[in-house]
Amino acid sequence: MGNMKLNLKIWRQNGSNDKGSIKDYPVNDVSEDMSFLEMLDVLNDDLVRKGEDPIAFDHDCREGICGMCSLFINGRPHGPERHITTCQLHMRKFKDGDTIYVEPWRAEAFPVVKDLVVDRGAFDRIQAAGGFVSVNTMGNLVDANAMPVRKADADKAFDAAACIGCGACVAACPNGSAMLFVSAKVSQYALLPQGRPEARERALNMVQQMDAEKFGNCSNIGACEIECPKDISLENIARLNREYLGATLSRE
């Protein structure tokens, strides 16, 4: 069934304290129907049989929605195709004889755990700093339809909420900036009436945490938008800029 031969150049790093390096893995019999991760599964299966250490990489749903898979493939986050995650990338997009570089996300805020696995806990901490509406669980909230939301706003909020938190934006940004991620969350809530009351504090707190995590600064390059598997728009970053400016100027 397999018909492609590939030369993989994969980043190996045994734990966060190891220096790490690129190692060569020639693979044969790659079927074009395989997903990229299945190709790595087959390689790992082979490594285990040979008594070698398999390559660690993050993955879970393999449907492009959980945001767990990462991988910087041939110089681009989630590989050469647009609007898909690594798990949705299939080998038919490569040619027999190709050399493929596979590296982890690179950012100070995303330290390598092992091989291709990085720690994206910074995103959770940013979320915990303000990425929510302060509402407790209650059995007697107002009816969901008591407050209509303009469809255009609801749709835009959804576009922003589609973010899967994979970190491709950070990986793609030469500055290692997390603005697309943060702005998507701020935008989702800023656009909905339920999120408006704390919109200013949210923008201030999330940005403060973002800076504390040592992400770089946004310089409006736009690579994040191009590489985002969920097509999150730069418009969100502008919205965060507005929200934050308003919040800073009106702060007492």
């Binding site: 110089g75 570089y101 600064n217 690579a223």
Partner: peptide, 16 residues
Amino acid sequence: AARPVKYAMEKGSASR
């Protein structure tokens, strides 16, 4: 400082 380790292979032209 936010990107202390560079990529071995980076195709920036694709996105910026």
